[in-house]
Design a protein around this nucleic acid. Structure first.
Length: 450
RNA sequence: GUGAUUGUAGCUCAGUUGGUUAGAGCACCGGAUUGUGGUUCCGGGGGUCGUGGGUUCAAAUCCCAUCAGUCACCCCA
């Protein structure tokens, strides 16, 4: 039988799990340190909760869960006859796998409005699913690591997220550039050139700049039938590298002034704070997600070819789609899968990311109970330990110990059994000593052995 | 959804213009070494050549279809 796993999914072996946990734990550590509290939401949501939130394309990428029971019986015959999938889905499926963590979070906030304290700072590290075609760094099942603050418009949180990005990537050893911009500036740009109805198209065009270059962006803008003068204005805006130019550029646009003021306030929060990584104002940063209304972030790894490994931004009315009161907020996300790939590529994982147990070897089944007693003594002391099942030749047992990267093995043979002691071998140095039973724990607990 | 590309041992790959029994390295198993792994030497097992069809005296090799992976685009993390 030929077995396989679904497209875009992966198995993770022990080594990969250790590495992934290392990333998640680092992120989690700083989420906690910054006062965020964890929540989890189900793998499945009602389809009504998910559909229509991610655009038409997003709806197609939703995994739908087939209804239980005789689901075909409940579908009206005309719809089956019509072969209209979107219509049929409504009767075939009432649940879907979650597509991101943000919409389920919004649903959570509305449902639990009276239990949460505003401002509510939550983090969430869970898998999400998208029926996308897989490619490098993109899977159908992947983890998102999100943190959001809702119910406050204070720009201190922007500063906080900059520092959160900075510290996490510092700890992981990835050198990054944290790019920052404000959607208000992009909106102001569309007001300035009197193209407000094209805001979204212009924004998505700008977002592609680093991929398709200036000429590519110009081509898109020309297709939108923008006159050359307006395109020139857009390019001028994109060329700015400091805020004073932007302020001057938007002299008469109130929203533009506001955007600059917000960015300046974020910078002033950070004035006396040490950042390991760079923070760059980037007017070309746009981000595709339409719900962002204020500050936007994107984090790019230096020295490696990879899309963004983190991002986020400020939004209004996250909860409005579910009929709750309009609560705005700001959130960021770490692209854990891509961070993993970057760290593999740059060989940034620490060599000793896991610790193998001390392995007890017995040279004859008659000593197995004896070994089992020692095993429990070690475990009681909190020493990670294991006992090789009796019977195999010493060579095979040693090989096993070597393969699982044991630092120490304890050997119980005829001699040790007779003298009530044990042979302790350091697998790294090859050094082997005979010690009393009582000394084993003491010896293994020595700090240089950890 | 659109396009490109690759499927040969557990893994990474070689395999000439179609031509005898499809190879290598690593991994695995055994031995050299009956109480010592990681180094060395010797030996061994393991393949429907992704699948199905076609062309041919003859197909891993050529053609068609199909499935799967990978990569790019759209979009996105």
């Amino acid at each position: 039988m030929k077995v396989n796993i679904p497209k875009g999914t992966r198995d993770f072996g022990p080594q990969e799990i250790y590495k992934r946990k290392y990333i998640f734990n680092t992120i989690k550590k700083y989420f906690e340190l910054f006062g965020y509290v964890p929540i989890e939401t189900p793998a499945m949501e009602n389809l009504d909760t998910l559909t229509g939130k991610y655009g038409e394309e997003g709806d197609q990428l939703l995994f739908k869960v087939l209804n239980n029971g005789d689901f075909l019986k409940k579908v009206s015959p005309d719809i089956l006859e019509e072969k209209n999938s979107p219509k049929a889905v409504k009767q075939l499926s009432k649940r879907g796998l979650k597509y991101d963590l943000t919409i389920p979070f919004a649903r959570y906030v509305v449902m639990h409005r009276n239990e949460i304290n505003i401002p509510f700072k939550r983090y969430q590290i869970q898998p999400v699913w998208r029926a996308d075609r897989p490619q490098k760094g993109r899977y159908q099942e992947f983890y998102q690591c999100d943190a959001d603050v809702i119910g406050s418009s204070s720009l201190q949180y922007e500063a906080e997220f900059v520092q959160l990005f900075d510290k996490v990537f510092r700890d992981l050893g990835i050198s990054v550039d944290i790019k920052i911009n404000n959607r208000k500036l992009l909106t102001a740009l569309s007001i300035l050139i009197n193209e407000e109805e094209n805001l979204t198209s212009i924004t998505t065009a700008i977002d592609k700049l680093d991929k398709i270059g200036e000429s590519g962006v110009v081509n898109i803008l020309k297709k939108l039938k923008l006159p050359d003068a307006k395109i020139t204005s857009i390019l001028k805006f994109l060329s700015f590298r400091n805020l004073s130019d932007v302020r001057e550029f938007f002299n008469d646009i109130e929203l533009g002034q506001l955007g600059v003021k917000e960015l300046e306030e974020i910078y002033s929060f950070l004035t006396n704070q040490q950042l390991t990584n760079t923070l760059t104002f980037d007017p070309t940063l746009a981000r595709g997600l339409n719900y962002y209304t204020g500050t936007i972030f994107e984090v790019a790894a230096k020295n490696v070819e990879m899309g963004s490994i983190g991002g986020g931004g400020r939004y209004d009315d996250l909860t409005k789609v579910f009929g709750g009161e309009a609560l705005g907020g700001i959130g960021i996300s770490f692209g854990a899968e891509r961070i993993f790939d970057v760290m593999e590529e740059l060989k940034l994982f620490p060599p000793k990311i896991k610790s193998a147990p001390v392995l007890i070897l017995t040279l004859d089944p008659i000593y197995q109970q004896h070994g089992y007693t020692i095993l429990n003594t070690l475990r009681d002391e909190g020493i990670k330990a294991d006992l090789y099942p009796a019977g195999d030749k010493m060579k095979k047992q040693m090989k096993y110990a070597n393969n699982i990267n044991c630092q120490f093995v304890i050997i119980i043979g005829e001699e040790e059994f007779r003298n009530q002691n044990a042979s302790l071998k350091n697998m790294i140095t090859g050094e082997q000593v005979t010690i009393d039973r009582d000394e084993i724990v003491e010896k293994l607990l020595k700090p240089e052995n950890h």
